[in-house]
C-alpha cells in the first residue's frame, strides 16, 4: 500500500516534465505533501525519493535545509500564523506584536495551540514592510496589525 494518495502522486508526477532532472521536483513535491498533511512523514519522504530516483536521505537533506517543512512528530496546525520580526516591523512594534500573540495563544514561536487551530511562528522580513508590523496567514499578508486586530484574528482563526 502506498502511503501517499493516488491524487497526490499524480500531482507530483505532473511536475516531472517541467525540469531536466527529476531531483528538481523535490521542492514542489515537499510543498504538495506538506500542504495536505501539515508535515512530511518519513514514509512520504521515501515515496518521493522513489518517484524521483533519489535516496531518501537526499530528499531529507533538502527538506531539513529549509526550516519551513515540519517532520511528522511536529505537524502544523490548521493555520500557520507568521509574525515578522525583521527591522522595518521591529521598528513599528513587531516584537511587541509577536509577544502579544505568544501570550494570547499561550505558545512560544514554533508552538501550536492546544485546540490544534494555530501554529505561531516568527518570520524574517515578509516583504510587506510598508504595512509594518505585518503578519502572514499561511501565505497571505495582513498589514498594519494592531493588538486589537491581532485579537480579532485569533478569534477568527480559532473558530
Amino acid at each position: 500500500m502506498a502511503f501517499l494518495s493516488e491524487a497526490l502522486r499524480k500531482k507530483i508526477e505532473a511536475y516531472i516534465p517541467r525540469y531536466p532532472s527529476k531531483q528538481a521536483v523535490t521542492l514542489p513535491a515537499l510543498h504538495l505533501v506538506h500542504d495536505e498533511l501539515r508535515c512530511v512523514p518519513r514514509e512520504a519522504i521515501k515515496e518521493i525519493a522513489a518517484m524521483l530516483d533519489l535516496a531518501p536521505a537526499q530528499v531529507h537533506d533538502t527538506m531539513t535545509f529549509y526550516e519551513f517543512f515540519r517532520e511528522e512528530h511536529n505537524p502544523l496546525a490548521e493555520t500557520r500564523l507568521w509574525v515578522c520580526r525583521s527591522l522595518a516591523c521591529d521598528l513599528r512594534g513587531g516584537e511587541e506584536l509577536l509577544n502579544h500573540f505568544c501570550h494570547k495563544l499561550g505558545v512560544q514561536p514554533g508552538g501550536k495551540t492546544k485546540d490544534g487551530k494555530i501554529t505561531l511562528e516568527f518570520a524574517e522580513c515578509l516583504g510587506a514592510c510598508e504595512g509594518a508590523p505585518a503578519v502572514m496567514i499561511n501565505d497571505e499578508h495582513r498589514h498594519n496589525v494592531t493588538t486589537e486586530m491581532a485579537d480579532a484574528l485569533v478569534g477568527e482563526l480559532s473558530r
Partner: peptide, 19 residues
C-alpha cells in the same frame, strides 16, 4: 521555502535543482 540565501543567484540555482 523561506530561505534568504536562495536569493543569491547560485543558491537559487541549487535550490531550483532540488538541493
Amino acid at each position: 521555502a523561506g530561505a534568504y540565501i536562495c536569493g543569491e543567484e547560485t543558491g537559487l540555482i541549487e535550490s531550483l535543482e532540488g538541493k
